[in-house]
Design a protein around this nucleic acid. Structure first.
Lengths: 106, 106
DNA sequence: TCTTTGTGAAGCCGATCGGCTTCATATTTA
DNA sequence: TAAATATGAAGCCGATCGGCTTCACAAAGA
């Protein structure tokens, strides 16, 4: 089974879960309240995210709080680095265009 | 059919294609030479990437050069912004730890 | 102890994925 | 014009996805 962070964030529900728990750790039930799908489906998503090492669990009695392992998100950032220089150059080009337009107005 | 940039980069072959053509525009045949799958499968990936607005085509006779629309990659970066502040804080914490270790050695 | 609550695991199902093969079409070249 | 080349489209197939329902189990509370 393919399990990597890119496949993990491919699903919109999983992306929403990540954003949710980024603020603070939450239990599966609390997370499920934010969606229109069953608690069990959320649980499945949590398992997938955990397998990708994106989540950490903290047990408190019978409740399990899931929290985001933010370091793992860095991996996406690192992959994006390959394109970052190109992206920045494009921005500079845009800046140049805006600069030229500005000067023409004078 | 779900078609967004996150689903587009979920496949490792598609990520490799993006990296390949980021350097310079390439034809489907040229791209396929870098992989162990058929030209037709590459073509399918190119169609998916195009549907996500990640690629631009430039026809030259019977050859079609695909090039990366780098601006679209920005969307991933923008999504990551939600976590960036947290990631930076973690780095600062790490810096603090390293700083403390460094001072203890003295 | 019995019931409620929080959770995970297993299995079902229709849709999609990512390969493949085959075919159609357009351009170039001999 | 005929053959070779570059490409896209359609359809097949096994695997996976993302929902669902059902069940098992442990912890907490009446």
């Amino acid at each position: 089974m393919r399990r990597d962070i890119f496949q993990a964030i491919a699903d919109p529900t999983r992306r929403a879960i990540l954003v949710l728990i980024a603020v603070h750790a939450m239990t599966p039930n609390a997370i499920a309240e934010h969606f229109d799908i069953t608690r069990q489906s959320i649980s499945k998503h949590l398992r997938i995210l955990s397998e990708c090492d994106l989540l950490a669990q903290k047990q408190d009695g019978r409740e399990i709080f899931y929290e985001l392992k933010i370091d793992k998100m860095k991996e996406i950032d690192i992959w994006l680095d390959q394109f970052r220089k190109m992206m920045e150059e494009r921005f500079q080009q845009l800046d140049q265009v805006l600069f030229t337009i500005k000067n023409k107005k004078k």
